[in-house]
Design a protein around this nucleic acid. Sequence first.
DNA 1: AATAGAATTAGAACAATTCTAAAATTGGTG
DNA 2: CACCAATTTTAGAATTGTTCTAATTCTATT
Lengths: 125, 125
Amino acid sequence: MTKYATKILEIVESSHSHMTADQIFDALRRTYPTVALATVYNNLNRLWQEEKIHKVSVEGMPDRYDRVERHDHLVCKKCGRLLDVDLGDLTAQLERAAGLSILSYDLKLIYLCDECRSDTEQKGM
Amino acid sequence: MTKYATKILEIVESSHSHMTADQIFDALRRTYPTVALATVYNNLNRLWQEEKIHKVSVEGMPDRYDRVERHDHLVCKKCGRLLDVDLGDLTAQLERAAGLSILSYDLKLIYLCDECRSDTEQKGM
DNA sequence: AATAGAATTAGAACAATTCTAAAATTGGTG
DNA sequence: CACCAATTTTAGAATTGTTCTAATTCTATT
């Protein structure tokens, strides 16, 4: 673990805000002002392969990074906002229902966040 | 619905293979050899907004398109291969567990496809 | 046939990410 | 410490997937 990898892991784990590579780059530059964006991508990929961080993908948006402890997500259908939610470990149930063994799963609950809901109501939709 | 939109919808619905925009472009060109890629993106976006097709996003891969009837997915952790699986409609359970109301959900079971599993075993992993 | 509105086109532009090759850093070993 | 090899970082170019733009074509209506 190099100093950059260490700090990047720290940033990803301490922020629960699902940052993009670019946001992590900005945050990292506050500590190491000369770091290159490629270093961020290198280390994010390495940490991801080593399963030290998670990647969250929502259609049409840049990948976001997340701590690795199991939990699920709420995704706003309108604005893509991402929030944590934890429904507990459903692996056993899912395996039973699917009739095969899985490594893990990725569960996103699609909803309308408060902000988007009030936008929608305003416009009488 | 224009002729392109109609044909694109037909391609997406008839193939259960989760095609990328590019693959849909190729397929469409077999019927309309002069069609432009932008037309494919325009129509895919339109159909998606009208909720006539689904978009499936896996980290690091181009978006893939899918029929809209509810079903879940198996995603191979190694190669990203996507297969359909249907665990039934879990909306009610998930809402109960999460304590809020949702529009829908996106469930991916992560596994190793047969091919990747035998690769893995060969290398003694 | 004239017109307006929508759809399509080609290609440029853009954003996110990966690649490349060179330079810097790190960790042993003699 | 001095050397070497391996790893990491760097800057910038390249690639990929997608969107944008403005001109053109198509369609439907008068």
